[in-house]
C-alpha cells in the first residue's frame, strides 16, 4: 500500500515536470502551428543558469533555490523570445521550415552545451529539505515531488488566469481558435507569438531547475530526454489543449512509474503503447478538437 502511494505521488510529481515542458509546446503549437524541438534546450539552459545563480547565493539555502527558479525561468523566457524573434519570425507561416530551424537549433545548442559544460552529468548540492523525505500514509515520499506538484499547479493556474483575464490572453485564445480572423480585426498577432514563446520558455526553464533538483544532477542532455515524453504528452492530451496536456502528463507519468515498478522497468514502452492506443481510438488526442 505504501509503495503504491509512493509511486502515485512521485508519479504526479514527474507529471508536473512533464507538464512544465508540455504546456509551452502545446501553447506554441496551438497558436502558431510550430512544433518546437528547441524546447529541451530552453530547459537545459534554464537549469544551468538557475543553478549558477543559486550557487552564487548559496546552493543549499532557500534563497538560493528561489533565486535559481527565478533565474531559470527568466533565462528560459529570454532564450525562447530570442529564438522566436531571430529564427521563427523570418519564416512566418512556413511551418515545415520553422520545425527544421528548431531541429537545427536543438542539435547545435546541445553540442554547444556539451562543449561548455562537458558531456557528463554534474552532481549538484540540493537544499537540505529537498533531499529529505516526508512520511505520508506510511510512504516516505521525496520532498522534490511536492515541490514539482506545487510548481506545476502554480504554472497551470498562472497560465489559465493569464489566458482568461488579460487582454493578451484573450488575443492568444482567439488566435488559437482562428488566427486569420484575429489578424483581420487589425490585431498584431505576432506580438502574441513572441509572448507565447516567452511563457513556454519560462515554464521550461523552471522545469529545468526543478528537474535538476529531482535528479540531483544537470547534464546537457536532460532537455532532450524530457522533451520526448513532453511530445508524447502533447499528442495524447491533444495538440494545442492546455487542459489535455495537464491531464495527459499526470496519466503518462503515473503509468510510467507504476509500470517501472511492477512490470519489470517497462515504463517507457508502456507509455508508447498508450500513445498507440490513444491514436487508434481517438486520433486527435484526449481533448483535441476533432479534425
Amino acid at each position: 500500500m505504501s509503495t503504491l502511494i509512493l509511486l502515485l505521488v512521485t508519479g504526479v510529481g514527474l507529471g508536473g515536470l512533464y507538464f512544465l515542458v508540455a504546456s509551452g509546446l502545446s501553447l506554441i503549437y496551438g497558436l502558431m502551428g510550430v512544433l518546437n524541438f528547441a524546447h529541451g534546450s530552453f530547459l537545459t539552459l534554464g537549469a544551468f543558469a538557475g543553478l549558477a545563480a543559486a550557487g552564487a547565493v548559496g546552493a543549499g539555502t532557500w534563497g538560493g533555490l528561489l533565486l535559481g527558479l527565478l533565474v531559470g525561468a527568466l533565462t528560459g523566457a529570454a532564450a525562447a523570445a530570442l529564438t522566436e524573434l531571430g529564427l521563427i519570425r523570418p519564416l512566418y507561416n512556413r511551418h515545415i521550415e520553422q520545425v527544421l530551424v528548431t531541429v537545427g537549433l536543438s542539435l547545435a545548442t546541445v553540442a554547444l552545451f556539451e562543449g561548455i559544460w562537458g558531456p557528463n552529468p554534474r552532481n549538484i548540492t540540493g537544499n537540505a529539505w529537498l533531499s529529505d523525505t516526508t512520511e505520508l500514509l506510511g510512504a516516505r515520499i521525496p520532498n522534490t515531488a511536492f515541490l514539482n506538484i506545487l510548481a506545476a499547479a502554480l504554472v497551470l493556474g498562472g497560465i489559465v488566469a493569464f489566458l482568461r483575464y488579460t487582454r493578451y490572453g484573450l488575443i492568444i485564445r482567439a488566435g488559437v481558435e482562428n488566427r486569420s480572423m484575429v489578424t483581420a480585426l487589425g490585431i498584431d498577432v505576432r506580438k502574441a507569438f513572441t509572448l507565447v514563446f516567452a511563457v513556454g520558455g519560462a515554464a521550461a526553464g523552471l522545469g529545468g531547475v526543478l528537474a535538476a533538483q529531482s535528479l540531483n544532477y544537470v547534464s546537457p542532455h536532460m532537455g532532450a530526454s524530457l522533451l520526448i515524453f513532453a511530445f508524447i504528452v502533447t499528442v495524447i492530451g491533444g495538440m494545442g489543449s492546455l487542459t489535455g496536456a495537464a491531464v495527459a502528463s499526470v496519466v503518462v507519468a503515473v503509468l510510467q512509474q507504476l509500470a517501472n515498478s511492477y512490470l519489470n522497468n517497462s515504463g517507457d514502452l508502456i507509455v508508447v503503447l498508450l500513445l498507440a492506443l490513444v491514436l487508434l481510438v481517438r486520433p486527435s488526442g484526449l481533448m483535441g478538437r476533432t479534425a
Partner: peptide
C-alpha cells in the same frame, strides 16, 4: 506534426 511525433515515440 502529430505523425512526426508518433514516429518519434515508436
Amino acid at each position: 506534426i502529430s505523425f512526426a511525433m508518433v514516429t518519434l515515440a515508436f
